Computed example of a mutant assay.
Amino acid sequence: MVELVSTNRTGDDVAAHTPVDDLLVGLKATRIWGTLGWHDIRQRYRRSIIGPFWFTLSTAIMVIVLGALYSTLLHQEISNYLPYLAVGLVVWQYLGSMANEGCMSFIGSAYLIKQIRIPLTVHVCRIAWRNFVILLHSLPVIIVLMVSFGKWPTVEMLLVPIGLALLFLHGVWLGVALGVLCARFRDIPPIVTNLVQVVFFFTPVMWSPEILKNRAWVAEYNPLYHLIETIRAPLTGRPIYWESWAWSVGLLVVGFAFAQYLMRKYRDRVPYWL
């Protein structure tokens, strides 16, 4: 770790950050959090034959089993429903993991925070990158499903990398905000865990807003639905609504503003709370 910090010079010295620029310096330290995140994945699947591709296999099994069941219960055409469900589950797994693991981002890295001066954002980016790699390993399931049902890539798929980049950044601000709050208030992690489970059922992951008819506003005013749609719509050929992109970008701005506020006010107190 010491070697990574001392050799990573990208114009700004990661050790010379302040509460004001912690977010920026931490995001720019790609070599540190990228290496640590990938190391976490390698350690988890050490001595495994297929390694991280277990993510791909588990996602495929979950999508096929749930898709076969819920396509019947919801009276959906399976050729349309399986890709829809696959994208929703993959994106939700990332968001849910960032919410749950973000709560412990600083608590779990307390031994590093107390010994090495690097931006706190690095510890969050480490978690975000780890879960983002898991998401990328699950994307082949979606591609295989689409090709199997005769759905070929369209020009709208060029929006997918942009949506993925926004999704990664959403994970960062969420992890930073929850990390600071949970370091101070230890009752928040179990609250977030239960809240994620409840919100899942109110978010169009396994169901589509169209089945709600005149109550579709439940989905339209759900920002998580719009985050999912920025990736699901161009991938599956659904209509692309620019309102979803506006929601995603707007929430990103508000989220980073909130995370920046917490960093400026409480960043130096976090080590004493751990």
Rank of each mutant, 00 (worst) to 15 (best):
Q93F: 13
F200N: 06
T30S: 11
T18P: 06
R264A: 15
V199C: 05
L252N: 01
P19N: 11
L120R: 05
L178C: 05
S48C: 01
L174M: 15
P223T: 07
T203R: 03
L224D: 06
A68E: 06
R47A: 08
V155W: 04
T193R: 05
V254W: 08
L4D: 07
R267F: 12
V14G: 04
P204A: 12
V122P: 06
V160C: 03
Q43M: 03
G171M: 14
W129F: 04
M206A: 07
W242S: 09
V172A: 12
V218P: 13
L224R: 10
A257H: 00
A16S: 08
E156I: 01
P83Y: 14
V63W: 00
F258T: 09
W54M: 01
H226Y: 08
Q43Y: 15
T30K: 15
I191R: 00
Y261C: 13
Y221E: 13
D187G: 04
I127Q: 10
V87W: 00
S58E: 02
C182A: 10
L74M: 13
P153E: 02
F200W: 03
V249N: 03
D21K: 01
L181T: 00
W217M: 10
G88F: 02
V5A: 04
K114E: 12
W173Y: 08
L4H: 06
Y266L: 08
W217L: 03
V172L: 07
L274R: 11
T10V: 02
R267M: 10
S208I: 04
L262A: 04
L262N: 12
A259W: 00
A219S: 12
H75I: 15
T18W: 01
D21G: 12
S48G: 09
P223S: 08
L227H: 09
L136P: 00
T10F: 14
Q115V: 09
L73H: 02
I32Q: 06
